[in-house]
Design a protein around this nucleic acid. Structure first.
Lengths: 335, 335
DNA sequence: GTGTTGCGGACGAAACCCTTCCGGTATGCC
DNA sequence: GGCATACCGGAAGGGTTTCGTCCGCAACAC
């Protein structure tokens, strides 16, 4: 009973061969180990699944050695492109989630018309459900002003995958714009914002550029080599909180493990400390830093700096104190 | 392909589901008995194979009665569906936005497999771009624990569109659950949360239920009439903050126009007051209400109740005071 | 109503599938 | 040439899946 198979554990063994096929369709060149990991079985078992597929007449090609893997041969159009009902509904829901305007604005915009096309291609029953979902699920007005241009995003992703340097034009919040030659390490999406994690040649340092502020992208001939142990997500989190005007330093009376879940990644880097943990970062908006991020944290802490953050916390504390001092009864009668 | 009547030739059982699929593709409308004969198994076993196919996400449709049989889901006519390149990219981006897991977790889940199917149906060039986008856009771990069940959502949308009352089982945050008969006025999605705006018969009032907490939906015979001038979005905002355990009341020293932008809609209803404005609502989690919502607001205010919220604000104020004044000092009761 | 066809529960026994070992081959990089 | 990657296949053992059989039920068409 090795509870190793924490993944999609609840599928009947016989369905695994089907799922293997689907993975093969989605990611040509995948290795047996990878398939096994996704399905939560052994690599050996996966090879048996491949054998089963071949036995059933499906042309699975394999190449050995490094960069090898499995591929489907010729037009193995087995599982037709058809959505399950839940797939269709999930898709529509996800799109509405991310792009509330898509439902109502409908045609005229890319996402809306794409959604329409998908729904139209759906089988009768599912199509009706999906259409009802789109038409009857009201959405609050769109609050993301930052949806990047698909073409720009795509260009950056392509360059990143090809490890080609790019020259990009960037427009800052303040309105001024400039050009930079960068190594596009990765595109990362985080809380509905799209970032380019890159090495900027001009300053010889890592920066996170918001893709919606990128005005133009030119792919260059020169290649680059990304750091070997790059973890895009972690790296983004790490660089989001640095490079701003006001440094910050906060000491918590609890180990990092307990504090981490309360700390917004853009607050800075959380490390161990004799008293518990220490958070060092920077911000351009101490008030927001104090009220929106620090105040949330139910772990006792001490603000060590900088001066601007101390002021902001002091102000917030005073305001909250006054908010309850005005109440005629004292704490004694509480609860 | 080997579509010869393969008798009960020795194929491994797991491959039988594949062969069933193949037969289904070649002969739409085939009966279970016929499939069973071709594969040399029982008709019962064939029905089990069909179940396996469905489990693996392949939409097998069935019609009962004479001339009945099994068919692969229609809608395979995705051929005429041609996405513009920007449409395709926008769609992929929107899905990743809403559902970061879709890219990596992929196959096991509905959104992921649906996305894969869309990409597969794309023309070569666009398909590559879209796949690159999916595979190379890292996403931060998913922070929404609240993605509702598509089937539940769909059922509610359907009932809402048909103006049929529903009986639903709701599980509160605390863990207890109950049943309610409601008029489902509308499904509204707001900041990636899905809500059901409805009239609850038991309390004869309007409530907003989080759909991810709805455990079960039964559509009833009875019809209902929604209010003529229903504005689902506005109505949701208005009702988000009412109906919870702990009442809250806060007075601000500024007119509602200035306060509104800082007030999270779920905090309650903001009204005019002699001193400025008053916010009345309720919450099930005073600590969160105080730290996450109240503390953000840079307008001076006074908390008038209830006791639980007062306690929570007091605790937060004390913690912030200690954070800048040092540990040893007691709660800043009177300065 | 009657017949056809799909749907699904129960149950016991046989068969199959998965895991864990093993060694082998092929390929590409240093 | 050594080393790492990756596919390939055999064998053994234990668990559990799958199969067949039998049953009643639900749609649908004539």
């Amino acid at each position: 009973m090795p509870s190793q198979s924490a993944r999609s554990s609840e599928v009947s063994p016989a369905a695994r061969a089907l799922l293997t096929l689907e993975i093969l369709q989605n990611r040509p060149g995948v290795t047996a180990t990878e398939i096994a990991r996704r399905l939560g079985v052994t690599e050996r078992a996966t090879r048996r699944h491949i054998a089963i597929l071949r036995e059933a007449g499906i042309p699975v090609e394999s190449t050995r050695g490094p960069h090898g893997g499995y591929t489907l041969g010729r037009g193995a159009a087995l599982a037709p492109v058809v959505f399950t009902e839940t797939e269709a509904l999930s898709l529509v829901m996800a799109v509405i989630d991310a792009h509330p305007g898509a439902a109502t604005a409908g045609e005229g915009e890319d996402v809306g018309s794409a959604l329409g096309k998908v729904i139209r291609a759906l089988p009768r029953a599912a199509g009706h459900q999906a259409a009802a979902l789109r038409d009857h699920a009201s959405a609050t007005p769109d609050r993301y002003p930052s949806r990047p241009d698909p073409a720009t995003t795509s260009a950056l992703v392509a360059a990143s995958a090809a490890r080609r340097q790019v020259r990009l034009t960037y427009a800052s919040e303040a309105g001024k714009s400039w050009e930079d030659v960068v190594d596009p390490w990765a595109v990362v999406v985080r809380h509905s914002r799209w970032y380019l994690l890159c090495h900027v040649h001009r300053v010889d340092g890592v920066r996170t550029y918001r893709i919606d502020r990128v005005r133009d992208v030119v792919e260059l001939e020169d290649l680059f080599e990304p750091p070997a142990d790059l973890d895009p997500v972690a790296s983004l989190e790490q660089h989001l909180g640095i490079g701003w005007e006001h440094a910050t330093r906060v000491v918590f009376e609890a180990p990092p493990e307990d504090v981490a879940r309360w700390v917004h990644p853009a607050m800075g880097v959380l490390g161990r400390h004799t008293e518990g943990s220490v958070l060092e970062g920077s911000t351009s908006n101490p008030t927001m830093y104090a009220r929106e991020w620090l105040a949330r944290i139910p772990v006792p802490f001490r603000v060590e700096g900088g001066p601007e953050l101390l002021d902001a916390v002091r102000t917030a504390a005073a305001q909250l104190s006054r908010a309850v001092d005005g109440w005629p009864e004292g704490p004694a009668t509480a609860s």
